[in-house]
Design a protein around this nucleic acid. Sequence first.
RNA 1: GCUGGCGUAGCUCAACGGUAGAGCAGCUGAUUUGUAAUCAGCAGGCUGUCGGUUCAAAUCCGUCCGCCAGCUCCA
Length: 652
Amino acid sequence: MAENESINLILPDGSVKKANKGATAHEVALSIGPGLARDAVVAKLDGSFIDLTAELDRGGHFSILTFDDPEGREVYRHSVAHVLAQAVKRLYSDVQLGIGPAIDDGFYYDFDMPHALSEGDLQDIEQEMEKIVAQDLPFEQEELSRQEAIDMFEEMDEPYKVELISEMQQEAVSIYRLGEFVDLCSGPHLPSTGRIEAFKLLNVAGAYWLGDENRPQLQRIYGTAFDSASDLAEHIDKLQEAERRDHRRLGKKMDLFSLHPQAGPGLIYWHPQGYRVREVIEGFWRDTHRERGYEIVSTPHIAREDLWETSGHLETFSEDMFDPMDVDGIKYLLKPMNCPFHIMIYQSEMRSYRELPLRWAEMGTVYRYERSGVLHGLLRVRGFTQDDAHIFCRPGQVEEEIIGVVRLAQYMLSTFGYDDYSVKLSVRNPENPEEYIGDEETWDQAEGALARALDRIGLDYTEEVGEAKFYGPAIDIEMQDALGRGWQGPTIQLDFNLPQRFDMTYIGSDGDEHRPVMIHRTVLGSMERFFGGLIEHYAGAFPPWLASIQVQIIPVSEDHLDYAAEIQSDLSAHGVRAEVDDRNEKVGYKIRSAEVQKIPYMLVVGDREIAQQTVSLRTRNEGDLGPREYSEFRENLLHDIQNRYMEPSMTD
RNA sequence: GCUGGCGUAGCUCAACGGUAGAGCAGCUGAUUUGUAAUCAGCAGGCUGUCGGUUCAAAUCCGUCCGCCAGCUCCA
């Protein structure tokens, strides 16, 4: 290697940096700026990651990544996962390593070991990790041949690593040394453990090796890491905030719903306060659907086995269905989906092309057998009400119909305060046409219609090749809540299968029978899951139009009960959900009680208010706002409700 | 379903081999209250279930049921 041979590195801003061949990425970073060198996590040359300590033997597009880059963060956290594994190896005997990748908000590492890890062990492990960080051990890469690597990991009694290597295609296997610790890893990593600033182990849980439930179950430790203690603290705060907002906690505290495991797990009991909110949601849902050309239907909860035979559910969905019940010697099944029932309505008479599209919506309660371990509050239950709808249309109407559904979804989501979402278009894998029902032309047309619909609306989306179900392409919308967490929202699914299975037809303008296209769609998903999401999105503080109690009237003493009752009955007459706190308590107590219930408006009424026919207004977001003319308050209130504001706006 | 943890009053939690306790909520009474908790009293539990160990079990062991964290799966 010539001493002074130089290479050209093209930096992200387009400028060219000259460096000596053989210089390390770290040295280059240093020459760009000491700050960058300090923050550098890893480098990238022509799109491939390289360790900062690696020597550069050629030029190319070059960048230095820090923790602020998503990829830099991943490398950083992945490096911490190695430190975790090293600490566990030091502390416990007979430990076999699984894998330890970075994930969205942190990292994990899987272990197979006889000692059952508990949360209490995490502190010990963290302490050992701190020691490893203090030792500032360098991550040192080495390349071995496959066989050498297999021999080495066999020698080390690491069967999972051996399995991983055996699955690999390439001849050269990369390993990393960290002091006495060796791990199979393609890298890259931080230069040394001293670069790790802040980490925390979060929990421990079981996880199947390679995600396969037929393989051994390992113990998984989850953790997270940041490049500053304050960012870590902020992240922990966010986790705690999520805990505070947990719908199971708030649902109990606010008396919205309950579960009764002794009466059957995964089944929801809506309490009066919760059902009021649901009623408002459903009312809004019904009005919106009628306005947009839907008819509302209602169908039974059970149907003969034959129907599920025809629909194909018995074949593909029976594991998720409750066992049949016997009715006069005939088997009936509880419905896990509403679609066959809407098809029954379609089949009740001959259909003409003039009738299409038919849009039928139903708040359809379905039951699905979910494995016990997956049940979770309102989010994963065994009985739930879908805001389901099916659109039956001609193939040429698909594009317009999809636009209608997406616009409906956008309108409803934004009304509920979800303004950020991402859209996914699931299309078929053209390499496996045999996996899909329906001819190629139908698919091309349908996928084209979905994509054109999204384009015409101007929505960005990602196309997921091979994600389509066998019976048709789909659009899935994931919405972000107030904490930035993703929730599965509206889904729109084209179906070429059921119209065929039920031999659905309509008479076209040509007098011949044609096959309609069927679109399954849901906007809210299910009332249970959507409500759970809403509780967490709003932290229980529902906007005035949704709040179960919109106005709490607080009489100062017994003498003011009549005036309070007068106001309540007037508000009720105007459709407002108002209640009087007539308990024998001080004003401060009643205020606190209303605040804890997150009631949007509080009206304090005493002698002064009665004398002047006013109310003293307090809102949960702005606190004490002083006296108002009652009629003026009522007008503002109705305005807030009608416009579905997120918070009371009483600022005149 | 699997791995691990956990089931004590309506809720949140104590007691961890020797007759089960607090705060909040509830009820009763006093107080008549002015913007986030007035005071006093009362009541509330076959310690999830069934079985075992022990002179003695909420406490130790096992079973089943359920809950929690994940895995797998999903609206």
